[in-house]
Nucleic acid binder design. Structure first.
Lengths: 337, 337
DNA sequence: TTGCAAATTGACAGCGCTGTCATCTGTGTC
DNA sequence: GACACAGATGACAGCGCTGTCAATTTGCAA
């Protein structure tokens, strides 16, 4: 039969409640008792039964990671975040569950309610663009479910993790400017993703700082997908004055731009410099390898989850953490010819 | 306060136990009662509390999906399987949890035990190469935990899903042969993955059927990673008699081969045909787009989970399902020049 | 030494379900 | 009309923990 808390209590000559206290790191247990109980747990390889703990304690020790499977079909970006969140949850003996939540349609709040009623997560980790749907955040607050966000639009009143994407984008464009490029195009992402706005803003900031007036034809709307990158690039290549460099708002679109460049017979980087954002594995597998901004997705997932866990464990230490980025110069960018 | 089973019972004028029977689709409930109870549940939006159900019923309604994070860092293949497994679990109101289980080291059985004791899954879905570790399978059987496998080496005594990978590989090589290629190289995968053996066997079968003696220099061992594809290709290109086509055992290695080809100044497909296996998103994003075998990973995950759920729900209908593959001819293969 | 607050420990009920087993109801048989 | 029997329903305890609150012990000032 399995070892129960009661068995540990008997072995350590204390009451079950005291074992429970030790298990949950509660105060008011003498050091001697704590050590004795810990030793007994260890010796018997005691594992608390999650369902009993949940039922009696009215909490689930479960963190749900929410993602929008509308825009993110099986993406590497999410898989990396998941990996980090999982590590953080494991380290605090919490379980973790990935849950898609399609943001299309107007019943997503109802679907969120169902998700909560069905699984009772103690807290949730939000990924873009779910980070920014006000009705959803409101509902989470109403139901008293703490959440932490990865790269939310607003840093105010939010815990989680973000990166200075605008400065990263600006850094990327400055790299292109330093190579002598002046006609630099930008392929932006879906407009309701915070990332799209920041990256576009960084582009504009760098261009303006270089004294270049914005040419509206050089900014094309994409959708963060490979296909949308291809389309955007075709549009750019049809311009009378082609850009000499394209900064795509993510790597998938950048790979689409490179694909379209090949299609149009343009050599990268000789005829066209291309760069992206995110540094997904694909970036280094392309030929030429893609110059991009490295975003530490895995670490960001871990950090966001750790902030959430601080709240769940009743510490007031949770914050909005900022993570560093880095410019990865590879072979897809070169001096303008 | 939340709606409890007792509340539903009162509303439907039956005992709690009868509501429980309806909830669990048990026999010996009259149709009239069943409908009345269902209606009450619906009207009150009743959601059973998972922890209470688990505690009383001694089962968790949890399916764990195990993967080896040693060889599979955040791969798209796994993300797609996960997506399918999740869909299947949702449709039967089971929860699903991704769990890495590093197969390196000799304590993986102990780590499996810990995983089971900590989370109490009712069943597990196994992904390659975890599908084939005998001690692990033995332990699962000892502990009475049903499992279903995705592409296990042995189809005997196993439920889950597989694909005829050998025939798929043979089909791929036959495609190359039909283009006139004779010096066809193969970059194989990690040897303890079933996929490596089948794909190599399919290659050999096709070559032999075409009356070509095997040239050992044309078969290079890889590791399913981009980098190993690059290395293998460099090795092949250094041969006195270069191959005119390379069949890599997966898409990541194929992309490595293409990268090395670019590096060596070889044009794909004019100077070298390259093809892969799996059809991950990357395959269509490469230039030229990669000829490959499409493997329906998402569907396979779903099918494997459904087989497992059959067992968990006490039906004896579970089997080893075979899924179809398809040859995706794109731009990376062309007639030999 | 005494007294009192704080720290430590324990008794007990109950979280919301399901397993077991007893009871009841309706049907068919002779 | 009495009896047997399968099907339908319910009573009740208890799954393994934690919350509440009471009891006990400890530390320390007077």
């Amino acid at each position: 039969m399995r070892v129960r808390l009661e068995d540990v209590a008997r072995a350590a000559s204390v009451s079950p409640k005291t074992v429970s206290r030790v298990l949950n790191d509660e105060a008011n247990v003498s050091d001697a008792t704590r050590l004795r109980v810990r030793a007994a747990m260890e010796a018997m390889d005691y594992r608390p039964l999650p369902s009993a703990r949940s039922l009696a304690g009215n909490r689930s020790f479960l963190v749900a990671m929410l993602y929008d499977n509308n825009d993110n079909p099986a993406s590497t970006y999410l898989a990396e975040i998941q990996d980090g969140v999982l590590e953080a949850c494991d380290s605090h003996r919490y379980s973790m569950m990935m849950r898609p939540l399609r943001m299309r349609g107007d019943d997503f709040v109802r679907r969120l309610d169902a998700l909560i009623s069905d699984h009772h997560p103690d807290g949730v980790v939000l990924t873009p663009p779910i980070t920014d749907y006000a009705p959803l955040l409101k509902r989470l607050r109403e139901r008293g479910i703490p959440y932490a966000s990865v790269s939310p639009m607003s840093r105010a009143d939010n815990i989680g993790v973000h990166m200075d994407e605008q400065r990263a984008a600006r850094t990327m464009v400055e790299h292109l400017l330093s190579l002598g490029h002046r006609r630099i195009a930008h392929v932006s992402g879906i407009s309701d993703h915070g990332a799209s706005g920041w990256r576009l803003a960084g582009y504009r900031e760098a261009m303006a700082a270089a004294g270049l007036a914005e040419d509206p034809a050089l900014v094309v709307q994409g959708a963060f997908t490979f296909g949308s990158g291809v389309d955007a690039a075709r549009q750019l290549f049809a311009l009378k004055q082609r850009p000499t460099a394209v900064f795509a708002a993510n790597d998938d679109m950048a790979s689409g731009v490179m694909w379209a460049a090949h299609e149009a017979g343009l050599k990268v980087p000789q005829d066209l410099s291309v760069c992206g954002f995110d540094d997904i594995p694909l970036a280094s597998q392309l030929w030429p390898a893609l110059t991009t901004i490295r975003q530490p997705s895995r670490e960001m997932g871990k950090m966001a989850a750790l902030q959430l866990l601080e709240v769940l464990r009743g510490r007031g230490e949770a914050q909005m953490m900022q993570m560093p980025f880095s410019l990865e110069v590879r072979d897809s960018t070169a001096p303008v010819s």
